[in-house]
Nucleic acid binder design. Structure first.
Lengths: 165, 165
DNA sequence: CAATGTGTTCAATCAAGACTGAAACTTGTG
DNA sequence: CACAAGTTTCAGTCTTGATTGAACACATTG
């Protein structure tokens, strides 16, 4: 499939917009967008460069970044020397555990803060303590959510696919 | 309390780092950091400017932004004409509902994508369908989480405060 | 082990947007 | 109502960081 179509281009830009809000470079968002809608579900290095009208260098930087953070994976296709990339399949489950890491950063910040305020009255610490307690609450919940998703995904997907048929 | 202390400065910069990752301007992160550790738990416009070594203009922009997204609130103190700002108290609960909005943006993007791929085989749609299904799963769960937090917060806070005493 | 097809690196360019500072505006007070 | 204090706005500056493009490195294949 070529990204020949204006609407598909637009879709990719919209994805880039959204990903930008999450702190990724636009180009990374474009790559994700393209890989969400292409058939087959992977693109080679230079297909990406061509279809996103970006330089090879920029694609290289971007695939590197997205691979590092676990969003992309590189695949080898028999009979091709080119690298191909596709979205990791357990992306959504993984999102739950990367959230964990984010929350832990906040929790650690709260710990630091409390250490600095150790001689202050309890009242002064309330904001930081609430952050700690909330973080712990979420950290406890996330594995449960991941677990539930794991269990329910097959049935939910099946339901959803049945609707299409 | 003055932010006279190097460690407190550092704490504020660390907060700014973390907030920057979440897509906020550094200055917004600094304001949040300062308001997490100051006593009393609010600061005036020019206390912020002074303690963060920022221009009044920049503080004005920042408080405006943070108020708009529901992180800060402006308070009036009797006997003062200055504006004071503090962190909204229901910040963490609210975080759960703003997550909802983010997820909905993704869900909508998936809807758009599926519309574009409507004539493609089901296989081509799997990535988008999984995004839809996952989004719906999370959207269903978030209110439950908010509810659980609401219920457990008092007891968790009390436990935590008892540890301090 | 060249030759060719791929991919990466990096210095330079460019663009976005954060921040400043001064002027304009608003609000409260005598 | 005039003055002063406080706040906002906005044009310009500056910083950061994304992107390019060309040189370099690597790998595959005949």
């Amino acid at each position: 499939m070529n990204i020949d179509n204006n609407q598909l281009r637009q879709y990719i830009e919209n994805t880039a917009d959204l990903m930008e809000e999450h702190g990724l470079p636009r180009m990374a968002g474009r790559v994700i967008g393209a890989l969400m809608i292409c058939t087959p579900p992977y693109l080679s290095h230079d297909e990406l460069a061509e279809q996103l009208q970006a330089s090879k260098g920029s694609i290289s930087m971007t695939t590197q970044l997205l691979t590092r953070v676990g969003i992309l994976e590189r695949i080898s296709l028999p009979g091709h020397r080119k690298h191909h990339y596709q979205l990791r399949s357990r992306l959504w489950q993984d999102l739950l555990s990367t959230s964990s890491e984010h929350i832990q950063q906040h929790r650690r910040l709260a710990d630091d803060g409390l250490h600095l305020l150790k001689d202050e009255p309890a009242e002064a610490k309330l904001r930081l303590i609430e952050l700690q307690v909330f973080s712990d609450f979420i950290l406890e919940l996330l594995p449960e959510m991941a677990d539930r998703w794991e269990r329910r995904r097959p049935e939910l997907m099946e339901e959803r696919l049945a609707q299409l048929a």
